[in-house]
């Protein structure tokens, strides 16, 4: 009898643990759903408002009373296609060139021990503490002399984006550090040159970090405001989407451009988000790896 009693009490206790866990999990689910709603609401609102026809101005409600593609159609009559094309070109070119530069830099700093290496790394750390924006004052005038500003801002901006990208070597250096050095040494003994080691051993192993670097480099120009604003300097033909669309939300323009901003936002977000979701795995790997190594 006493046995059955203890069994019953243990069962009861077990039930208690289960119940409390269930309550805990339910609370967790509620919080997670809430978080998801809060994080997605702005994007849902943008999407809904981009289809609103009845007014172009901010209204107190979200769901349109009249649905239509007017905003998207109107976008085509503005400079938006031009900005979009500018940004797309910059993003593609930057993605390729910046990846090459970043990988050269990080591979060298990870794999080679040469004189001045520590100094170089410290020097770049200190350089990074200067507000990069300051350099734009002079770069703008230099680029202007070269004819790469305003309407021709695209090549100028590409130059600005890639030129100093070597300073962002941290994440990929952290990745290369994790590839065992014994691989290099074995290949050296077999008579491979350093170049052959890079080509035949390291690069095939580096797919994740190459994709991560391409992805972040591709996303950069879509979000850049400061540099693009300096270099395009008031000339619509040379703007990227961020600078162009920023002006739409000015006090005197917002009343006629608000819903168009939403439509433009949707068009900008689609390719970047699609690419990002497709390559998400590599991005997560890069971010988690890079942060731990500091």
């Amino acid at each position: 009898m006493s046995e059955s009693k203890t069994a019953a009490s243990s069962l009861k206790r077990h039930m208690g643990i289960q119940a409390s866990r269930r309550i805990g999990n339910t609370a967790a689910y509620i919080v997670l759903v809430l978080i998801s709603v809060i994080w997605l609401i702005p994007f849902v609102c943008i999407l809904l408002q981009s289809f609103r026809v009845e007014s172009t101005w901010q209204v107190g409600y979200v769901i349109p009373q009249q649905w239509g593609l007017d905003n998207y159609r109107n976008l085509m009559n503005t400079d938006f296609p031009k900005w979009y094309l500018n940004t797309l070109i910059m993003a593609l070119v930057t993605a390729v060139l910046q990846t090459i530069i970043v990988l050269c830099m990080s591979y060298t700093l990870s794999r080679f021990r040469f004189k001045g290496r520590k100094f170089l790394m410290r020097f770049m750390l200190i350089l990074g503490m200067f507000p990069g924006m300051l350099t734009m004052i002079i770069l703008y005038r230099v680029l202007k002399d070269l004819g790469m500003t305003q309407a021709n801002a695209v090549p100028g901006l590409i130059l600005v984006y890639i030129a100093s990208s070597g300073m962002g070597y941290y994440v990929s250096k952290g990745f290369f550090d994790t590839i065992p050095k014994s691989l290099d040494e074995a290949a050296r003994i077999d008579g491979a040159t350093r170049f052959q080691i890079l080509k035949k051993i390291i690069l095939p192993l580096s797919k994740p970090i190459v994709i991560y670097t391409v992805l972040t480099a591709f996303m950069g120009p879509w979000g850049d405001y400061v540099f693009a604003r300096y270099v395009s300097f008031g000339t619509s033909a040379g703007m990227n989407v961020a600078v162009g669309m920023y002006n739409w939300l000015n006090k005197d323009q917002i009343s006629s451009y608000y819903t168009m901003f939403c439509a433009g936002g949707v068009l900008v977000a689609i390719p970047v988000t699609a690419l990002f979701l497709w390559l998400q795995k590599y991005y997560v790997e890069g971010v988690t790896g890079g942060a731990v190594k500091g």
């Binding site: 978080i35 998801s36 994080w39 997605l40 702005p42 994007f43 609102c45 943008i46 996303m219 879509w222 979000g223 405001y225 989407v241 961020a242 669309m245 920023y246 939300l249 901003f261 939403c262 936002g265 900008v268 977000a269 970047v272 988000t273 690419l275 990002f276 979701l277 998400q280 991005y283 997560v284």
Partner: peptide, 18 residues
């Protein structure tokens, strides 16, 4: 994924909209 999607959308869109 729901949280990560919000990283993908360029900041100028989300920030200006918010």
């Amino acid at each position: 994924t729901i949280l990560v999607v919000t990283i993908a959308i360029p900041q100028f869109i989300s920030l200006l909209y918010v």
